[in-house]
Design a protein around this nucleic acid. Structure first.
Lengths: 135, 135
DNA sequence: TTCAATGCAAAGCTTTTGCATAAAG
DNA sequence: CTTTATGCAAAAGCTTTGCATTGAA
C-alpha cells in the first residue's frame, strides 16, 4: 500500500534527524533546500499526514497559532500502547506507558462514547525541569 | 486607554455567558446574530486579542489547525477544569468535565513529573457517530 | 471637536485540492 | 502497463490590515 519514493524518504529522514525537536512544514522544506533538494509543499503535507496516521510522527499546534508542528516519535502501529507527552518548554517527548492511561482509554470509550486515537493525541504541558525553571 | 463601546461589551458578555466553555470567533458572531446584533469579524478579533492581552480570556488552538478557541477566565480566577476531545471524523469538539480526568492531571504531575496544560491538549479520536459510520 | 472603534474588503498565512505529468512496481 | 506520487497552481479556511466612516468622550 503505497510506493516508496525519494521525497518520502527524505522527509522522514529530516524529522528523524531532529530528534526531540519538532519541525514545521517550512522547516522541513528549508532543510531539504539546504541539501540542494526541492520538494513541493503539497508533497510535504501529504507525507506528514500519512506519518501521523501511521503513528510515526505526531502533530500539534505551535505557539502563537501559527503553522502546525510535527515531531518524530519512532513508534509504529505495533508498538505497545502509550501516550505522548510533549513539553512545550524544551520540546522533549515523553513516551508514557501506564495503567492509568489504559483505563482512560477504556473510560472514554464506555462513558463518553469516544474512541481515542493515541497516535493523534498529544498531551501538552511542562516537564519537571521546565516547570521548575518557571517558578 | 480605549473607548467603551457597545460591541466590546457584547463580546465580553458572550464569553462570560459561556462559563467554562470556549467559543470560536464564529460562535460569537452567531450568538450575537441570534440576538439580532451584527458585529464585524475584524472587530471581534480585535476585542478578543485585547481580552487575551489583558488576561481576561485565554486563547488556544482548536482542532486540526482550524479556528482558535477563546475562553473567559474571570481575570485570573481558575477556569473550570475540562479537557477537549476532538473528533477527527466530523471535527466536533466535546468538552469533558470528568472526575477521572482530574485524577489524570494529578497522576501525571505526581508520577510522571509532568504538568499538563489543558488548553493546549487536545485528545483526538472518533465520536460515536463517526466510529459507527466507519465500521 | 478629537481620537479611537467599527466595518468592509483586500491582503496574508497555512493547508487542501484538482489535475496533468513523472516515477514506482 | 497500471497505479500511486509529485508538483504546480488554484482554492479554501482563518486572521490581519488599510482606510473611510461612525461613535465615544
Amino acid at each position: 500500500m503505497g510506493y516508496r519514493t525519494r521525497q518520502g524518504d527524505m522527509i522522514l529522514e529530516c524529522l528523524k534527524a531532529q530528534g526531540s525537536r519538532h519541525m514545521t512544514v517550512e522547516d522541513i522544506r528549508a532543510a531539504l533546500r539546504d541539501k540542494g533538494e526541492s520538494v513541493g509543499q503539497a508533497t510535504v503535507y501529504r507525507h506528514l499526514d500519512r506519518l501521523v496516521r501511521e503513528g510515526v510522527a505526531v502533530r500539534y499546534a505551535g505557539a502563537g497559532g501559527q503553522g502546525a508542528c510535527y515531531q518524530y516519535t519512532g513508534c509504529g502501529e505495533d508498538v505497545r500502547a502509550h501516550y505522548h507527552l510533549v513539553c512545550s518548554g524544551c520540546g522533549r517527548m515523553i513516551h508514557m506507558e501506564c495503567g492509568l492511561m489504559d483505563e482512560v482509554t477504556t473510560h472514554l470509550l464506555e462513558h463518553h462514547q469516544f474512541r481515542v486515537d493515541r497516535f493523534r493525541t498529544v498531551i501538552s504541558g511542562l516537564c519537571r525541569q521546565c516547570a521548575d525553571k518557571r517558578s
